[in-house]
């Protein structure tokens, strides 16, 4: 068994020139170890899906990739995560700039209690990306356009974002992330609070965003992983069990545990 999983790890060689990498990443919540020696490469301009049963560490891993775990007390991390070959846990890295390059979309839509316009303009404003109102308008419009939301909200940009539907709110959060022109977008179960129609729209959007951004998505839905991703990584009990082309993972998994999870024998 162990030999099989070992061969699975080595059967998928690390890709050439990855956008982000994790090497021997361990994470502890106080005394509980949540991640064990995770090694994973993220390919540029592809969608990488992280799947696995609840509590397997996939969200924790995602939050390591833009140092969101820094805000939680009692977390210790060792190992290395790189972006374009630079360690993001290096002391010289400014976490503010890092998060501007690696955006994040959360499980529950979390628009700020401001207008639609101000929600999208939030990032560009705090990072000082614009010099004039016109430039800001431009960024807001293109971001909303990219998130496929512009048509629905262009007549009510000044109305409160909390008045939008759940699906629209989530696409607004994606627009908000896109507005700071990140290179990578991390999505933590972005559709789990949405109905099937809104989910379909967000999935369509993810597919379009792929041409400009590197996307890592955590999902509980294997259909979703199969639909939107090019690469899939399977986590189990804090360990990365298997990673590979999505087609290969779903049709011909090498590890017994992956097979069991995908065929629904445990979860």
């Amino acid at each position: 068994m162990a030999a099989v999983s070992q061969s699975a790890m080595t059967a998928e060689p690390s890709v050439s020139s990855p956008k982000m990498t994790a090497r021997d990443l361990n994470l502890f919540y106080s005394d509980n170890q949540a991640l064990f020696d995770v090694n994973l490469d993220i390919v540029e301009r592809q969608v990488t899906a992280l799947i696995g049963p609840s509590g397997c560490g996939k969200s924790t891993f995602l939050r390591c990739m833009n140092r969101m775990n820094d805000t939680i007390d009692g977390v210790t991390i060792n190992g290395e995560v790189t972006l374009d070959g630079r360690d993001i846990y290096d002391k010289r890295i400014d976490v503010v700039q890092l998060r501007a390059r690696i955006g994040m979309v959360f499980q529950k839509p979390n628009p700020f209690p401001k207008s639609i316009y101000d929600n999208v303009a939030y990032g560009p404003r705090i990072h000082g990306l614009v010099n004039s109102r016109d430039e800001l308008d431009e960024i807001v419009m293109t971001s909303l356009e990219r998130a496929g939301l512009l048509k629905e909200v262009k007549d009510r940009l000044q109305s409160p974002a909390t008045g939008l539907s759940g699906g629209q709110q989530q696409r607004l959060c994606i627009a908000r992330a896109v507005a700071v022109s990140p290179e990578v977008i991390l999505m933590d179960e972005p559709c789990s609070a949405l109905d099937p129609i809104a989910t379909a729209k967000v999935e369509e959007l993810i597919d379009e965003l792929r041409s400009n951004y590197t996307i890592v998505i955590v999902t509980h839905s294997m259909q979703q992983a199969a639909r939107v991703s090019q690469r899939t990584a399977f986590f189990h009990l804090g360990k990365l069990v298997e990673v590979g082309e999505t087609d290969q993972i779903f049709t011909n998994p090498k590890d017994e545990r992956t097979k069991g999870y995908i065929t629904g024998r445990f979860g």
Partner: peptide, 25 residues
């Protein structure tokens, strides 16, 4: 907490998050 996360996730500092998100809310 989700609003704080949203703001931190966009690269806002603590004081920006407090001034622009938490305090107005």
């Amino acid at each position: 907490q989700s609003l704080r996360d949203g703001s931190y996730g966009l690269g806002a500092t603590k004081s920006e998050t407090i001034r622009h998100v938490i305090f107005p809310a």
